[in-house]
């Protein structure tokens, strides 16, 4: 149902239209300049990373073909036998997946403890000395920026092949990532309990235990669970460099073109990651709910 729209007199309308045109022109100019810079950056990047459209168009069919190749031939007539053949290594793969989850668990736990210890030293509201805060923060930044797989590469040389370097690599990286998040939580706490504990004669450890900890603990657990979720993905590839878990079988299957094994292992990894995502999300929502109840 169209309604009559009242129209302003032309002289008022002109001023408004001119202002609108000016505003949009300025915005368009910014977008245009930004767009040109972006295109330049993309061209430079494409040149540097050897992007080749011909190579891509010649080979792109291999990508769906690759995945099509990994699909096992399962017919209805011999369904159970086909599935059994596809998942022939299921016992070994499940054990390796279990290893992967345990690596994640130990690594995340050790990293959370490390981050927990360091985060109080990195919080400017609890530590008076700027030097300690600065050094702790830079250490955490270093642990966070170096990817865990690089730590794993180095640790494999120091500790030998096996799950141990994987656990330690995840622990170190997690210390950096969680330490930073934890420190941000600690810096945002209500300062009154801290002052209260100091005023009643508490020392530094009592301040942390009775003033800071009750305020931050549920947030800490929530962040640690989120990290656990991320680390499962990280641990799944630790085997690429010999640091244990399902990754070692996956890289072997990909390198040796055992197509159906690739799809079986990938499926197992994706299912594991999804289940862990769902579980940790539930737990985190309950924790956040507990927080808002208080």
């Amino acid at each position: 149902m169209p309604a009559a729209v009242p129209k302003l007199p032309d002289d008022q309308l002109d001023a408004l239209a001119a202002a609108y045109a000016g505003a949009t022109a300025a915005k368009r100019r910014h977008v245009f300049i930004g767009g040109i810079l972006l295109v330049l950056a993309v061209v430079l990047a494409a040149w540097s990373s050897e992007v080749s459209i011909t190579k891509f168009s010649e080979n792109v069919w291999r990508f769906p073909a690759y995945f099509a190749g990994t699909i096992p031939s399962i017919s209805l007539a011999t369904f159970s036998a086909d599935v059994a053949e596809w998942l022939w290594g299921i016992k070994r793969w499940l054990r390796l997946l279990g290893d992967t989850i345990l690596i994640t668990y130990l690594g995340t736990l050790a990293g959370a403890i490390g981050g927990f210890v360091l985060c109080f030293l990195a919080s400017a509201n609890l530590v008076r000395s700027p030097a300690i805060v600065f050094v702790t923060r830079r250490t955490l930044e270093f642990c966070r920026t170096v990817p865990e797989i690089v730590f794993a590469l180095i640790f494999v040389l120091a500790f030998g092949l096996g799950p141990l370097p994987g656990v330690l690599a995840i622990a170190l990286h997690t210390t950096g990532a969680l330490g930073k998040l934890f420190a941000e939580v600690v810096e945002n706490i209500d300062n009154k309990p801290v002052e209260g504990v100091i005023a009643s004669g508490g020392n530094w450890f009592q301040v942390v235990r009775f003033a800071a900890l009750p305020q931050v603990l549920s947030n800490f657990v929530s962040y640690a669970l989120l990290r656990f979720e991320i680390n499962v993905r990280g641990a799944a590839v630790m085997g690429f460099v010999g640091a244990g878990g399902i990754g070692q079988d996956l890289i072997e299957a990909v390198r040796k073109f055992y197509y159906t094994d690739v799809s079986a292992i990938l499926m197992l990894i994706v299912i594991t990651v999804m289940v862990i995502d769902l579980v940790t999300e539930r737990v985190r929502h309950r924790l956040i709910g507990m927080e808002s109840d208080r």
Binding site: K55, F56, N59, V60, R62, F63, Y66, I149, R233, G234, A236, V237, F240, L250, I251, V254, F257, L266, I269, V270, V273, M274
Partner: peptide, 15 residues
């Protein structure tokens, strides 16, 4: 659910 490194491995065998 599939890590970047796994995608890289797959694309290396494609292109």
């Amino acid at each position: 659910g599939i890590d970047t490194l796994i995608w890289a491995l797959i694309w290396v065998s494609v292109v």
